[in-house]
Simulated scan of single mutants.
Amino acid sequence: MGPQHDDETCVTVHLPYEPASVRRARHLLAEDLRRSGIRETVVDDAGLVVSELLTNGLVHGRPNADRTIAVSWCVRPDLLWLSVVDGGDVDELEAVQLNDHALSGRGLAIVDHVCESWHFERAAGTRVTAELAYA
């Protein structure tokens, strides 16, 4: 478990840089959120967001120096903070318009639709962070 603060609990896990880590991250996140009393629909949405962020990191990024991809979440009052860090270096990320014909490229559009906001930053890799309201 990550650091605990007065009104937030944060967790970071470093998972192998491989597709199986998406399932593992969803499982760990869901267990932790359920223990925190987060309702099931929000747990499902959070799992979807983490899956999309992780998949993007695995498809478009690179492993961190330790050959992992990092997933973090913080439970804050009325807000979940979900973050993925890979070792890649991007200049720009944007959500594409959802349509019925695209076979890929929906990840950030889904995150954009489900979350209050999301952003990315470059610092020793690429960190994409989404904020999911649950009040």
Rank of each mutant, 00 (worst) to 15 (best):
R122N: 13
S83D: 02
I110P: 00
N56R: 08
S36T: 11
D100C: 11
E8S: 13
I69H: 02
C74V: 01
D86P: 02
E8V: 10
T55S: 10
H5Q: 15
E121K: 13
A30P: 05
S83V: 01
A25L: 00
L15M: 05
E131Q: 10
A46F: 01
A109T: 10
A46W: 05
A70H: 04
E18T: 09
A135S: 12
D89S: 12
G61N: 06
H5G: 13
C74I: 03
V22R: 02
H27G: 08
S117V: 07
P63A: 11
R122Q: 15
T68L: 03
N56W: 04
D78E: 12
L53G: 07
T41V: 10
L103D: 10
L132H: 06
D45I: 04
R26Y: 02
R106P: 04
V59P: 00
R24P: 02
L28D: 15
A46D: 04
E94Y: 15
C74L: 03
V22A: 01
R122A: 15
L93Y: 02
A130P: 06
L58H: 06
L132W: 01
D7W: 14
C10T: 14
E8N: 12
W73T: 03
V114Y: 06
S21W: 01
D91F: 11
E31Q: 13
E31D: 12
L15D: 02
P16T: 09
V59Q: 12
V43P: 03
S21R: 07
V50N: 00
L103P: 07
A25V: 02
G125R: 03
I69T: 06
S83C: 04
T41H: 10
G107P: 10
R62P: 01
L48E: 06
V59Y: 13
P3W: 12
A123E: 15
D45C: 05
V85S: 11
L33Q: 08
A25G: 01
